[in-house]
Nucleic acid binder design. Structure first.
Lengths: 340, 340
DNA sequence: ATGAAAGCGCTAACAC
DNA sequence: GTGTTAGCGCTTTCAT
């Protein structure tokens, strides 16, 4: 634990001098341009190793006009949803010699705009995951002319490159499932206010009214803790079915049921959304909607890659979802198992 | 969705020209140097907004000799452990006008080394969280003279700036707790091989032998899935106590118990480590060891900040932990509740 | 095949 | 208070 003297980093000029070659030759060798004499190239390569030369990223970025970085903004890194998207995206990026710069807005719409601006300055292109920021902010960012892709949000009337998920269809499937089990009313623990995903789920719940399934909403959020806290209110109302915004919330609700001695699914059914890894390990296993997050991440990455190559707009991609029935849902006690 | 023409970005020269000022004046205004005439400054500021000027990050980095970025490498972003560290670190970094560049090695020691190299090129300093890479690699990185802090790993004989956690003490507390409940033997679902945290836990288990608590190890890993898979082997052996490497593994074990109809804690006790948010919502609540990850992140950030300011070595900081007893542990059926 | 030199956009002396 | 200019380290024409 001694003070490390801050020596000047080895530059390309140092290598050139030591190897007895020109700067451009070193640059060629380092960048794998093969129009260099084998012997010279070898000599340069050896010198690079000897001196421990590493190209300065800022200088490369400045000279090349691109940073080799793609920026990603997510509302909550702790959510496996985004983590899985990131994983797929990172794999793609690495393949293309890019790295991924991730930022977490903590569900704060204001921070989001700030961070996005910063991300733009540091990247060749950005991906906004489930942005909560106002439409105007999104528009302003889009007009900056920086390659940008938006995932999990649809904004009509804006020239945006979008990758979306069929949240509406997913929630409709949940409602259908519950209705067919004989449920007539559910309580919806709703997600973040500014979330398009939440709006879509609400739209589906509304649509389900036509099938005789009514719902009541309790503002909740997107975390296990929020689910745990608000579940008691839902339970007290005597509901037989709790539809959670996502799996985290559902897991919290499940925990509350356990604490209160309310049996799931005998006394109350609980559903989630997303199908995070944990959903399967809950007891009972959580009925939820599987969202192919890796596909989502891959599509976003590919869209971004196309933009970086100067390609124009593509048709907005939409990812399908799938109902995943597990043990947390059942017919309400004493109800016929038929659609409403 | 139309093709956005890739127009040249506005530069500081553009602003200077448009505002009728020199480049340096614009630079001063943008950087908040107050030796500029109020009227001129105002004019510049207006022009900046009009033209939508944003300083080029690469150019700034090159000219300033620092990137304003600190790099963080974690083995698994999905683990709340690292997420919470990151959160604390990010907050600190933002306060200092820096941003955090995170990379996930996916528990791969080779990738780890590669990514660390890359991280160095792009940052002013790096934080290695729970690095699994060989000692030699760690030494090589340290000798690069780039500010570097290592968390969750002790490497004797290396000049490293380290922030550690008392994993040994934590596991010893777990053992003591189980022993006092009357347990005489436990099965340990061990973590990643190259993990120092795992080695420390094993050391504690060994030490507990002196108190009459013996253990058997089953290689497992660090995920819920791994815990679920290996738990059956532990259960089959008829053990009354399963000590998991971390909470994820414990949650998996709990799920397996539920699936197998094995009651916790009546038939078998289960313990975790870390006290992630989920631990409290498991049923039964998970007995585990609370690791103050925010403190860990903060200390790491502060250490890094000192290094960036050119400060020398500090005493390695060690973070204490705390046993968190919940419902997943109890005396084995028919055993006296006394220390072995 | 190799080298010289002109930028890339910005900061920070240094002069006025 | 304001402007001029020399780098920062690298890439990339353009000559040779």
């Amino acid at each position: 634990m001694t003070t490390t003297s801050r020596q000047r980093r080895t530059t390309i000029a140092d290598v050139a001098r030591a190897a007895g070659a020109s700067i451009s030759t070193v640059s060629r060798v380092v960048n794998g341009v093969d129009t260099v004499d084998a012997a010279l190239a070898e000599r340069v390569r050896r010198t690079v190793v000897e001196l421990g030369y590493r190209p300065n990223a800022a200088a490369q970025g400045l000279a090349r006009g691109r940073s080799g970085t793609i920026g990603v903004l997510v509302p909550d890194l702790a959510n496996p949803y985004f983590h899985d998207m990131l994983k797929a995206l990172s794999a793609l990026a690495r393949g293309g010699g890019q790295r991924v710069l991730v930022m977490d807005s903590g569900e704060d719409p204001y921070e989001e705009r700030e961070l996005a601006e910063d991300l733009i300055r540091h990247s060749d292109g950005i991906l906004l995951c489930s942005p909560r920021m106002p439409r105007a902010d999104l528009a302003a960012l889009a007009h900056r002319g920086h390659p940008m892709v938006v995932a999990n949000r649809v904004v009509l009337g804006l020239e945006l490159h979008t990758i979306t998920v069929d949240f509406f269809g997913g929630m409709l499937a949940v409602c259908g499932h519950l209705a067919q089990l004989g449920h007539r009313e559910v309580v919806y623990l709703s997600g973040p206010e500014a979330s398009w995903a939440n709006a879509e789920r609400l739209r589906a719940l509304e649509a389900a009214r036509a099938f005789g399934l009514s719902f009541r909403t309790i503002p909740c959020g997107s975390t296990t803790e929020a689910g745990y806290e608000t579940a008691s209110a839902a339970l007290e109302s005597g509901t037989r079915a709790v539809v959670a915004y996502n799996d985290f919330v559902a897991l919290g609700a499940l925990a509350r049921c356990a604490d209160l001695g309310v049996r799931v699914p005998e006394e109350v059914s609980v559903t989630g959304f997303d199908d995070i890894g944990m959903a399967r390990y809950a007891s009972p296993g959580l009925t939820t909607v599987r969202v192919p997050r890796d596909t989502l991440g891959r599509l976003a990455g590919e869209a971004l890659a196309r933009l970086l190559q100067g390609a124009g707009g593509e048709d907005p991609a939409a990812v399908p979802v799938e109902l995943q029935v597990r043990g947390s849902t059942a017919a309400p006690a004493g109800a016929p198992s038929a659609a409403g």
